[in-house]
């Protein structure tokens, strides 16, 4: 097979510019064709895509089991909620702030546990996610509003001129964020960092022997993943206008895990497909009422049986063959 020299998006999606443009037009035109309800489903699809991308850095690229990712998501959402309602800081300014807060939290919490391997790291991250949720419920310093959460969050706006307050605008907000993330992450995949991450995933000892600072790169993955989850939290909080601990349960972490596994570890188009499966299926299966989750679970099992590597597994570009 001839290896074509391709770069950027082409390489990520494995198809040509035309089809990529087609996809772009489809996503752009979609909200103008359907009702608000379907636009909002598209929005939550975007949120899960962003969350999936963020976990994909940790789980997909570096192979670190992280089942507490909802914790970072919650930190981002609550940072936005608290600073906006208590100090009146605009949502857009809080976007990087939320990312930084989640990243800082990830740095502090993950530094001491980063040397743990496989299942052990997984257990600690589960604990971390739960601790965040329980801390939010216990209302530390009267900030998080306990089980009721924080409410009355503003719309994202620049002054009074540009206010994001309709479903369509939120849809584009989240998908622009997703598109930027995909662009950045695809560049990252091609870079030294991306290769180092994959190397660690495949064989940590070999990576170390090759002079890769394993600890640094693992921590970097956690910090970047958390920052992206923080961004998702920021947008989620402003969309729902309130946050409560019920939105950041262990189940939410599991869903993100599923997104990455369904799509294929480390594969960006795979994450999009996984996110679509996770966010669209429950809505599509809604007519099944009581059997909804049963059908959903059955579909997931079938998928994993017939495509164990995920729906769209990552194909590593063959270099120097």
């Amino acid at each position: 097979m001839q290896v074509k020299k391709i770069a950027g998006f082409d390489r990520i999606f494995y198809f040509r510019k035309k089809t990529f443009l087609g996809l772009l037009i489809l996503f752009g035109a979609y909200p103008f064709l359907v009702s608000n309800y379907y636009i909002d489903i598209g929005f939550f699809f975007g949120i899960y895509a962003l969350l999936g991308l963020s976990l994909n850095i940790v789980l997909g690229e570096v192979g670190l089991f992280d089942l507490g990712h909802a914790g970072f998501y919650a930190i981002g959402a609550y940072t936005t909620a608290i600073l906006n309602t208590k100090c009146g800081i605009p949502i857009f300014i809080l976007l990087p702030v939320s990312a930084l807060a989640a990243a800082l939290f990830a740095y502090m919490v993950c530094s001491p546990i980063i040397h743990l391997r496989g299942d052990y790291l997984c257990i600690v991250t589960i604990g971390m996610g739960e601790i965040v949720r329980l801390a939010l419920i216990n209302n530390p310093l009267d900030l998080t509003g306990g089980p009721n959460g924080v409410f009355g969050i503003d719309f994202p706006s620049v002054g009074n001129i540009f206010v994001i307050d309709s479903s369509i605008e939120y849809y584009f907000l989240i998908w622009v964020a997703v598109a930027l993330s995909i662009y950045g992450l695809s560049r990252l995949q091609q870079s030294r960092i991306g290769r180092a991450w994959n190397c660690i995933r495949e064989d940590e000892v070999a990576a170390k022997a090759n002079g890769i600072d394993v600890r640094y790169y693992k921590l970097l993955a956690f910090v970047l993943g958390a920052a992206l989850a923080g961004v998702a939290g920021n947008i989620y909080a402003s969309k729902l206008m309130c946050v409560s601990p019920e939105s950041f349960t262990f189940w939410e972490s599991c869903l993100m895990f599923c997104i990455v596994l369904i799509g294929g570890m480390g594969s960006i188009p795979g994450v999009l497909i996984g996110a679509a499966a996770i966010s669209l299926f429950p809505e599509i299966f809604r007519p099944f009422a009581m059997y909804r989750m049963l059908v959903f679970g059955g579909a997931m099992i079938l998928m994993m049986v017939f495509r164990p590597g995920g729906i769209w597994p990552r194909k590593r570009g063959i270099s120097g063959k």
Binding site: Y37, D40, I41, F44, K239, L240, C242, E246, S247
Partner: peptide, 11 residues
Amino acid sequence: EPKTGALAATK
């Protein structure tokens, strides 16, 4: 769920 509640209301 809060999220699905928002979706339902939008619907």
